[in-house]
Design a binder for these strands. Structure first.
Length: 269
DNA sequence: CGGCAGGCGGTTA
DNA sequence: TAACCGCCTGCC
């Protein structure tokens, strides 16, 4: 156990970052701190002003958390450029001004977003927790609550649909098993095209994984919330995802992923 | 009860 | 290639 202190942290907010739908394993404590896991690394963290303190339970190290939390990017510049390119986006940016896009573990992100399809956040979190509890490796316990990493591909590939029944994944269970087998055979995918080959991974899920794990900042996942808010902000048809994707590419370019997160948070808020 | 929740895969026209 | 439909599950 080691304590990390990082000063001068700006344009960062734990609620905005952990509650914008990009991750499912962090939980808010009554005092405003967050406890959770990044892959197999557990931590608790608290932000007071511009001072971030991380209770780095498994000694992942400051470098690991800087990378995971994307602390070395100039988010002030990102927001300025986006607001300039699209004044309408300004309101959404202010609502989620402390969002950072996490750099998450690829396998964890693949599993998480396959589970996320046609599903809601509380249930996604429940499924992931149950899957980790039953078949993952225990990594730490906070205040008596045991937390485990998600099962690795080799573990998941050996499971049967029956094994996964208690996890209540529904029809997504076969996607996970099939995807685990594909990854065992061919390794983890390196790009969006590779992601789309995986069972249960379509355009929306692939865009999420590319953005949250591969660092593809131009990736612009369009879910029902983003579609809804874009329809209302830009007068587009809610079903016309093609027009939304085109607008994002033209207007936001490489910053599409950030724009998507502000829009999503604003729509949910 | 039907509708819906951060879609996908398969079928049809 | 676009439009449609079924799908696990839980909640309202």
């Amino acid at each position: 156990m080691s304590l990390i202190t990082i000063d001068g942290v700006r344009n960062f907010d734990l609620v905005h970052t952990f509650e914008c739908g990009q991750c499912f394993r962090w939980n808010r404590n009554p005092d405003g701190s967050y406890t959770g896991l990044a892959g197999s690394y557990p931590a608790s963290m608290r932000l007071e002003g511009t001072r971030l303190t991380i209770d780095d339970a498994a000694c992942a190290g400051e470098g690991f958390w800087r990378r995971y939390l994307d602390l070395d990017r100039d988010y002030g510049a990102v927001k300025n450029r986006l607001a300039k390119a699209d004044p309408v986006l300004g309101t959404a940016i202010r609502a989620g001004e402390g969002i950072h896009i996490l750099k998450q573990d690829l396998w964890e992100t693949i599993v998480s977003f396959i589970i996320s399809q046609n599903n809601n956040i509380p249930r996604i979190k429940g499924c992931i927790e149950e899957l980790a509890d039953r078949y993952g490796r225990p990594v730490f316990a906070f205040e008596g609550r045991k937390r485990s990493a998600l099962p690795q591909p080799e573990t998941l590939a050996k499971l049967t649909l029956e094994d996964l029944m208690p996890v209540k994944l529904g029809y997504r269970a076969r996607y996970l098993i099939e995807t685990a087998k594909q990854v065992l055979e061919k390794g983890l995918p390196a790009d969006r095209e590779g992601l789309l080959m995986l069972s249960g991974v379509g355009p929306k899920v692939a865009n999420c994984i590319a953005l949250f794990a591969l660092g593809d900042t131009e990736s612009f996942p369009i879910d029902v919330w983003v579609a809804r808010i874009m329809a209302s902000l830009y007068g587009m048809e809610e079903k016309d995802h093609k027009a939304m994707a085109a607008y994002a590419e033209k207007t936001y370019g490489k910053l599409g992923g950030f724009a998507q997160q502000y829009l999503f948070y604003y729509a949910r808020d």
